[in-house]
């Protein structure tokens, strides 16, 4: 039947690569080359050597920013989990049609540019926005500022990243064999122990996938924390931007970027050893 690739021993490996070539070239040109450049800059600007790394790894400002970055990423991940798990569970229990409707709502917000969503939060939480107005109408005298705080940036990041969590957990929940639940019930498992001993362990891979994805994306988040967050609680990406845009400290910014990259790779590596990275794609 037609043309069989596998019967052509010499060429069999060429075709897939040829098809991948445009993408590979694109990635090399616009991703790998700049990355290498950043790496080089981090050890050559201004003086050649590891001085930039020394500052990044020991300076108290940088340590504070990195700690803040990890703290925020962790907080966002936990919040996404708390929001996402029940929602994914709801989707897996309602009818197919209702699940599709929820999925559509989630993906609709997912497809909206996150810049747009970030500005939307600025409008909602701003001093003249509806939330503050509501608090005032309810009689709260001096409503606390919402915008440009840790609260606003966390809220917006949770909103932006929760779909990753939901999709990952929902995929796993959907695949759970209902006879596992029935069999657990027949053996005497009620709601809470059923959840603890059966349902939660069965959904753990989804939790792990979603969490790693959200955490890693959050580590490098730039626009949202910069626009919505408190300037005093900067995250790493924002500080890198500052270094480069305001102080033209290309070397220092590059060193920070590399450290962030290495940490991300370490997390992914650990995850890969435990679960296999291919699981991340569902």
């Amino acid at each position: 039947m037609g043309f069989k690739l596998s019967t052509l021993p010499d060429r069999q490996n060429i075709w897939p690569w040829l098809l991948l070539a445009p993408l590979a070239i694109y990635l090399a040109l616009f991703f790998l080359v700049p990355l290498v450049e950043v790496g080089i800059m981090s050890v050559t600007e201004p003086p050649p050597g590891l001085a930039n790394y020394e500052r990044v790894l020991t300076g108290s400002l940088y340590r504070k920013v990195f700690l803040n970055t990890f703290g925020t990423a962790l907080l966002v991940t936990v919040c996404c989990l708390l929001v996402g798990y029940p929602l994914a569970y709801l989707m897996s229990t309602v009818s197919k049609r209702a699940a599709m409707a929820i999925l559509l709502l989630i993906t609709m917000s997912f497809w909206t540019s996150f810049l747009v969503r970030t500005y939307a939060w600025m409008v909602l939480l701003g001093n003249n926005g509806p939330v503050i107005w509501l608090m005032q109408t309810l009689g709260i005298q001096d409503p606390p500022p919402l915008l440009f705080t840790r609260f606003s940036s966390t809220l917006a990041m949770v909103h932006i990243l929760a779909p990753y969590m939901i999709m990952n957990i929902y995929t796993v929940m959907q695949k759970i064999d209902p006879s596992l639940i029935r069999s657990a019930e027949s053996m005497g498992a009620y709601g809470r122990s059923l959840f603890r001993h059966v349902y939660l362990p069965l959904t753990a891979p989804g939790i792990a996938n979603g969490s790693v994805l959200v955490f890693v994306i959050c580590l490098g988040f730039y626009v949202t924390p910069v626009l919505l967050g408190s300037p005093r609680e900067q995250m790493a990406a924002g500080l890198i931007g500052n270094q480069i845009e305001q102080f033209l400290a290309f070397g220092l910014g590059s060193a920070m970027a590399i450290v962030l990259l290495v940490v991300t790779l370490i997390i992914l590596g650990l995850y890969h050893r435990r679960f296999g990275l291919d699981k991340l794609y569902g």
Binding site: D177, S179, L180, R182, S183, A184, E185, S186, M187, G188, A189, Y190, H197, V198, P201, L202, A204
Partner: peptide, 28 residues
Amino acid sequence: PQERNIGIVFQNYALFPHKTAAENVYFP
């Protein structure tokens, strides 16, 4: 179902994949 004290073997066995054989049998 939990109160009926009935043992069921499903066609696909429905063993808990995250538990060992002994833990599966210990579950009830």
